[in-house]
Design a protein around this nucleic acid. Structure first.
Length: 695
RNA sequence: GGCGAGGUAGCUCAGUUGGUUAGAGCGUCGGAUUCAUAACCCGGAGGCCACGGGUUCAAAUCCCGUCCUCGCUACCA
């Protein structure tokens, strides 16, 4: 082997690359891909090409209350839910070319053991705090109820199907114990309060460690959005965080007297990276430990911004107190991707689903990879539009990349029957072009090492641009008529660019790279390595027979874009229709129930913002009976000055309640328009006096 | 309310140890060309660098304030 090869070997490092474990309650969409899996895959592929030792690790995250609840709702077992999505996700990743070295699942035995051992180690070290609290318990089902397993009347807006953690009507976040008339969604029975013991990870004790490690140690090499978010958390003060739950779906807490309790999904999920690595190592017959415990291993977590706290604070703290483990070298979290101007939403079906894309755009994996990379939400939220998808494909992949390759291969076949010609003397222009070409690997490395994938996609495109410009300047199709000798050098040089392109495109466009290698007859033994591009005399040697041209990319027609937009329009319509469907009628109220409520016409006399609160207005209302203070959560829909003098409907005999220190005596009746803006329910006739009864 | 990130050309984004006419790609307009999927190549137009103050010989870049977007957090009908 050459000297360059051994030099590369010497620099070779060990990398453990993780991509966020997808939660198995839905398929993968473009937001996941753009934020996590595409950049992680590009990075992993690049490192392999550089000759590094890479473990690219992922798997399905299959525990947690959301799956348990969904199973109950659909009347199936949690196992059926996770099997369905695990398969769908795993298969679509594979078809999309995400090159995981191992894709495991947290329901695997090896993971249960690993997570269990991990917990036990911290437990034995006395790292946890134990605390007994009162939680809602369903006696009929014989189990504690997670917040989302409880519904009841919202104490704020009286919506009577509020969840234990949040009221979807008024948006307030709640404690399950706050709900009026709580009801178990499992049996419908009324839950009781019961004591339960849980284990907490005392994050507050790790503040000094986190400050030193991240705030001092990674000030300059972590992305501003990640660093800033971590700083924000640490500065606000960390609190102990429960790492166990009362639930029957998950990894049993491996401690005496913890029956019916499982590890909190956020405790076990990141450990899934470790168990997936173990699974992989076992299959390969190698030792997994260096990938997590050797100080020279570089651990990198690819995640979306919603996961920053877990990957930068909780998991590193766990690894640190456990001992033995290396800490992440970087966590290049991305922001979010929007779709046609709106947030991606699994529940609203506002997404481009990977498995659907693969069916609707066969053989176009690289087009989506490229679009998502070129437009990745690296520094701020970004918007995916189908028009942009079409433009990136037609104007860049087809027009620049595909076209260059096609020109070179067609001309080579036309002039030399597909045999790489022997070059003559190189001109200054040839030399410059070849020199520029050899600079590209370093340029790409610089972008990729800094996790600037968007930039890398443009650098890659510049390789094809270099080729196109070279052909346009040298005009072999003209020169062939006057000086055919010269054309051999031109075509040889252009073919070197195509050959480099085949290798350099591998991380971003793996399918295209493979096709191009095949076209240039540079597969397997014949292929050149990334590190050789800058140094090897000839990338595609004279005399080599290449194959016929075939198109690397095809145009995306307007029709296809329209079809996708139509699909989204339909989703919108369905959502609107779903919203229009009125909620079912509540249970019968007797006349007496109704007459209990004293509703009056009132007038807002004064209104001002509650200091230090976002949603609250403090109102003085003339109810006819008296002038009283009502605190109302309408500040996001109205300016105080705009509602003074407004006639409103007031529930005057609602039990008074103190809100942020101000006693609120009553409630203003509100409803909501299609955009979610609040609207007063008020008498629209003039001349109705304050205090008039509503019946 | 507090904190974090962002606000630069029609679009997507670079650019901050402060320093000549603020850059790239796409789009647009014009030119050239025909080997190539009407693609490539060359050139032009297009920016009060969110807004208002300040520091400075000099500000997209530093300081103060305001506004907008996204997120976290608090509070919360």
């Amino acid at each position: 082997m050459s000297d360059t090869h051994s030099a590369a070997q010497e620099q070779s490092k060990r990398y453990t690359i993780t991509a966020a474990l997808p939660y198995t309650n839905g398929p993968i969409h473009i937001g996941h891909l753009a934020g996590v899996y595409v950049p992680a895959d590009i990075y992993a592929r690049y490192l392999r090409l550089k000759g590094h030792d890479v473990a690219f690790i992922c798997g399905s995250d299959e525990h947690g209350v959301a799956i348990s609840m969904r199973a109950k709702k659909e009347g199936v077992t949690p196992q059926e839910i996770i099997d369905k999505y695990h398969k769908l996700i795993k298969d679509s990743f594979e078809a999309f070319g995400i090159s995981f070295d191992n894709y495991s699942r947290t329901s695997a035995k090896i993971h249960h053991e690993t997570a269990s051992d991990f917990f036990r180690t911290l437990y034995d070290k006395g790292e946890f705090i134990e605390e007994v609290t009162e939680q809602l318990y369903d006696e009929e089902a014989g189990q504690f109820l997670a917040d989302r397993f409880v519904t009841g009347t919202c104490p704020r807006c009286s919506h009577d199907e509020a969840y234990g953690d949040q009221c979807e009507n008024c948006g307030s976040s709640l404690n399950a114990t706050d709900l009026i008339n709580p009801k178990s969604t499992i049996t419908g029975s009324k839950p009781v309060l019961k004591e339960t013991r849980h284990w907490f990870l005392p994050l507050d004790r790790y503040e000094a460690f986190l400050r030193k490690w991240i705030l001092e140690g990674h000030k300059d090499d972590w992305k501003p959005n990640v660093y800033g978010q971590v700083k924000s958390w640490v500065d606000e003060g960390l609190k102990p965080r429960a790492v166990t739950r009362d639930l029957d779906w998950g990894i049993p807490v491996p401690v005496e007297g913890a029956e019916g309790k499982v590890l909190y999904v956020w405790f076990d999920a990141p450990i899934g990276y470790i168990s997936s690595t173990k699974e992989w190592a076992k299959r390969k017959g190698i030792d997994w430990e260096p990938y997590w415990k050797d100080k020279n291993t570089k651990l990198v977590h690819f995640i979306g911004k919603d996961n920053i706290v877990f990957h930068c604070i909780i998991f590193p703290s766990m690894l640190n107190v456990h001992g033995d483990y290396v800490l992440p070298d970087n966590v290049p979290a991305n922001e979010f991707l929007n779709l046609e101007g709106n947030k991606l939403s699994t529940s609203k079906n506002w997404a481009v689903w990977l498995h659907e894309y693969l069916e609707e755009f066969p053989e176009k994996q690289d087009v989506l990879r490229y679009t998502l990379t070129a437009n990745a939400p690296e520094t701020k939220d970004n918007d995916f539009t189908w028009k942009d998808f079409q433009a990136r494909n037609n104007n860049e992949l087809v027009a620049i990349f595909g076209n260059f390759v096609n020109r070179v291969v067609v001309l080579t076949n036309k002039y030399y029957n597909g045999i790489v010609p022997e070059p003559g003397a190189f001109t200054e222009i040839d030399e410059t072009v070849l020199k520029d070409l050899r600079a590209f690997p370093a340029a790409l490395e610089s972008s990729l090492e800094r996790y600037r994938f968007r930039e890398a996609s443009q650098v890659l495109m510049n390789v094809a641009r270099l080729g196109n410009k070279y052909l346009a300047d040298e005009e072999p199709w003209k020169v062939i008529k006057s000086d055919p000798e010269r054309v051999t050098t031109i075509m040889y040089t252009a073919l070197q660019i195509a050959s480099a392109l085949a290798v350099l495109s591998e991380p971003l466009l793996p399918f295209t790279s493979a096709k191009l290698r095949a076209m240039l007859a540079q597969e397997g033994e014949e292929s050149i390595s990334w590190n050789e591009i800058a140094t090897k005399e000839s990338l595609l040697p004279s005399g080599k027979q290449i194959n016929q041209a075939s198109l690397l990319f095809s145009k995306v027609e307007d029709k296809e874009v329209e079809k996708q937009l139509e699909k989204l329009e339909n989703t919108k319509k369905m959502n609107e229709a779903a919203n229009k469907t009125a909620e079912p009628q509540k249970e019968t109220a007797t006349f007496e129930d109704f007459t209990k409520m004293d509703l009056r016409v009132g007038t807002i006399l004064e209104a001002e913002k509650m200091p230090k609160a976002n949603k609250l207005l403090v109102l003085k209302v003339d109810t006819g009976i008296d002038t009283r203070t009502i605190v109302s959560g309408i500040a996001q829909s109205f300016k105080p000055e705009d509602i003074i003098g407004k006639k409103v409907t007031v529930l005057v005999n609602l039990a008074p309640r103190k809100l942020r220190g101000v006693m609120s005596e009553g409630m203003i009746l509100m409803t909501e328009n299609a955009e979610g803006k609040l609207v007063f329910v008020n008498p629209d006739e003039e001349g109705i006096n304050n205090g008039t009864m509503i019946s």
